[in-house]
Design a binder for these strands. Structure first.
Ligand SMILES: NC(=O)c1ccc[n+]([C@@H]2O[C@H](COP(=O)([O-])OP(=O)(O)OC[C@H]3O[C@@H](n4cnc5c(N)ncnc54)[C@H](O)[C@@H]3O)[C@@H](O)[C@H]2O)c1
Ligand SMILES: NC(=O)c1ccc[n+]([C@@H]2O[C@H](COP(=O)([O-])OP(=O)(O)OC[C@H]3O[C@@H](n4cnc5c(N)ncnc54)[C@H](O)[C@@H]3O)[C@@H](O)[C@H]2O)c1
Lengths: 221, 221
DNA sequence: ATTGAAAAGCGAAATATTGCACAATATTGC
DNA sequence: GCAATATTGTGCAATATTTCGCTTTTCAAT
């Protein structure tokens, strides 16, 4: 674990860099400077250089960064060199949208199992992914050695299901419900709260002047 | 604008507080302490007190905060006292999921118009929302005086459409595409990059020890 | 080879955010 | 009315993150 601990803020930007680098590579570009990258990903160029420097000297002064080198490096760092299987619990509105999306193409991530209470869905195959009944959840997760779950169930059910996920040995949860679920300290939760994000945007529009220098957010996060 | 400028990090937490406060009110609870709130929203209690204190002394020492008072106050601050209309461009996978979701109930936000290139969808009504063809976008947005747009189109189309949105006088964009769109400084963009969030979660699991004290994430963003 | 321009890397300052710890003050029960 | 208790509000130190500005290195053109 943790070669040299990287700032959380940096870690959040790595996938962003990686995606743009693969775009550049596909376009046949072989080198890139922090300034060019900066324009594309909307992150200050000094921040990009600092981010990269946590991993050692990846660039060449006076020249820039070699796109292929960076990709090779980040591919490994970001686990893009092996397929990551995740499960999805709650195959409703959002769940279906996520199932339909091809995370594999750009991210080498695959939703390999779904779970739902609804007997009309459980037992079927949706977008090529088998959906199991909730009763089978813990067993299946263990069997398939899945460590990451996307949680898109109604808010009321979120904590109960989470407790089951923890029992199943899950390590990370991407939580789309507005509930801040409780988990033991060894489980990591990534909250994606769409309604909150929308409200935050509205708040910024009402209360902050026309962009006090941050044309984008996130942290946005 | 900006009474006393509130830290961005605080602003992002306000909707979270608000949601839990309305939950408390519905449950008949009349008072709450920063410690109780802290457990529910998973934010340090001192941070909560600090956040609230930016708006003045909202609580009573030795007692806590009056739930109703806080709600009244934040309702106004967060524009929850009036309906906010937003538009959605790109009625595909994600777009449909968002259309189906009732943002009005908890957030007093309504998607009042949709736009899509696909002639099978344009001209229809989806989940009670009229979907217009792209040719009508600028005109409709102006006519309906919509200032906020949710962008769920294919990545290729994102920048072109954004340019149209800017022409239509849009002030804020919630961008679900992985492209960091370019906008003039008076337009605010909130990026929601689901694939990146998932990758970040994977990165944390691989490279950070079992939770170095942040059982949850975000910011955020 | 020499030189000029480009751009990384990085110390250090600036900025932002969090969390401790405690004095101030309200509430409650007696 | 008084003591005991609870809990806010905040100075301040700690931590995290960004950004400046400069030095060093490399490249490419002469
Ligand atoms: N759809 C959106 O745009 C949106 C926006 C913001 C937040 N959210 C949040 O995301 C979550 C999911 O939203 P959605 O719109 O997809 O909801 P949904 O109702 O469409 O889907 C929920 C799914 O979970 C299943 N389910 C219900 N109870 C279950 C249980 N106990 N165990 C397992 N599965 C169960 C249902 O059968 C359904 O398929 C909710 O918490 C919602 O608040 C959604
Ligand atoms: N679905 C997901 O789970 C998911 C996950 C991560 C990122 N995303 C991103 O969100 C965006 C939308 O994803 P999706 O899965 O909903 O895609 P989608 O293809 O299902 O939907 C896109 C919609 O936009 C419409 N469209 C296409 N070109 C258009 C144009 N020029 N103008 C207007 N409308 C146009 C299409 O008709 C379609 O209805 C994409 O950028 C995708 O990368 C989606």
């Amino acid at each position: 674990m943790a070669e040299t601990i990287i700032p959380k803020a940096t870690a959040k930007r790595l996938p962003l860099y990686y995606r743009y680098l693969t775009f550049l590579a596909n376009a046949g570009t072989t080198k890139v400077s922090s300034t060019e990258l900066s324009e594309a990903v909307k992150v200050d160029s000094a921040t990009i250089r600092r981010d990269f420097s946590y991993f050692g000297a990846l660039g060449k002064r006076g020249y820039g960064y070699d796109v292929k080198d960076l990709i090779t490096f980040f591919k490994k760092i970001l686990n893009q060199d092996r397929l990551t299987n995740v499960a999805l619990v709650g195959v409703g509105n959002l769940g279906h949208a996520l199932l339909n999306y091809n995370f594999r193409q750009a991210n080498n991530i695959r939703i390999s199992a779904g779970f739902d209470l609804n007997p009309d869905i459980a037992g079927t195959i949706q977008s090529g992914v088998p959906i199991y009944p909730m009763a089978d959840m813990v067993e299946q997760l263990k069997e398939q050695q899945i460590e990451i779950v996307i949680l898109t169930v109604p808010t009321d059910a979120a904590q109960d299901i989470t407790d089951g996920l923890v029992k199943a040995g899950i390590k990370g949860i991407m939580n789309f419900t507005p509930l801040r679920i409780s988990v033991p300290s060894y489980v990591r939760v990534q909250n994606v709260d769409l309604a909150t994000e929308l409200q935050t945007l509205i708040y910024f529009l009402e209360h902050y002047g026309p962009t006090l220098k941050d044309a984008e957010a996130d942290k946005a996060q």
